[in-house]
Design a protein around this nucleic acid. Structure first.
Lengths: 136, 136
DNA sequence: GTGTCTGCAAACCATTTGCATCGGT
DNA sequence: ACCGATGCAAATGGTTTGCAGACAC
């Protein structure tokens, strides 16, 4: 979504967009696009998967939500736009929030070690969720 | 690659496997499967992309190399099997190693905050590489 | 000789996209 | 009315897989 200089494309509040956002924010899990599609479909049976993808992308670009690029095949989405860390179960793929304070100063430390301009960081833990621990 | 109890499937050292590993270890970048395919093809013109994928997968499972699930569409591979952190350029996708000491105690701290059994962690920085900074 | 590995091609699956129509503003 | 958004279906692109022949041990 490139913006022509000077133009400000108005984002419309469509029924679909509103409901996708509502569903995402109503949940503490970190649903995939398809999870969300299933959830939203209960309220808008005719919505298409493409619309879900497009809206998630748009809202992530606007900083309203987060697109999580955690491990696994599918991307996941988070209604909490603030930086925070995650744990992912390597067996079932479940992703939980982790209530750790942000690691202070790492970005500064990293910036000192490289010629990259550091924009953000991500910390992700991998492990086994309680349910999967039992099953092993 | 599930192992039947008691069996120890012998891993054969084929020409393909050896060369894929050599190429990966000869390089400090973090090539994608296709990058590696192109590299290996110069020495083994008849190798197939499927073989590259299969071998990378196998060697990652054996802990000989690392499969990096950093952001972006493609997975990347690292000949250095030891835990270390990375910076990724959000514009061109380049991935560099980051010479930071491992964050002490985070896994223990994380374990205390969740009921997950923590197995490992990953810290990834996103930014702009020197080349992409110039181009903007 | 046995059982793994390879090359090839087709299959898979998450995500993206083109297009005609719809609907917010 | 304008132009962004939608539904649908087809396309894309990375990765995986089935199979018959090849090769390491």
């Amino acid at each position: 979504m490139l913006l022509a200089p000077g133009s400000t494309p108005r984002i419309r509040i469509t029924r679909q967009r509103q409901i996708i956002l509502d569903e995402l924010c109503s949940v503490t899990s970190h649903p995939t696009a398809d999870d969300l599609y299933q959830m939203v479909r209960r309220k808008l049976p005719r919505i298409s998967l493409g619309t879900v993808y497009r809206n998630l992308e748009t809202m992530a670009e606007l900083g309203m939500i987060q697109k999580l690029e955690v491990g696994g095949t599918q991307k996941r989405f988070d209604g909490n736009a603030a930086t925070h860390y995650h744990v992912r179960c390597q067996r079932c793929g479940r992703v939980d929030d982790l209530d750790l304070g942000l690691i202070a100063g790492v970005e500064k430390e990293a910036a000192a070690k490289t010629r990259f301009a550091i924009l953000r960081h991500r910390l992700e833990f991998t492990g086994l969720c309680p349910e999967c621990q039992k099953k092993l």
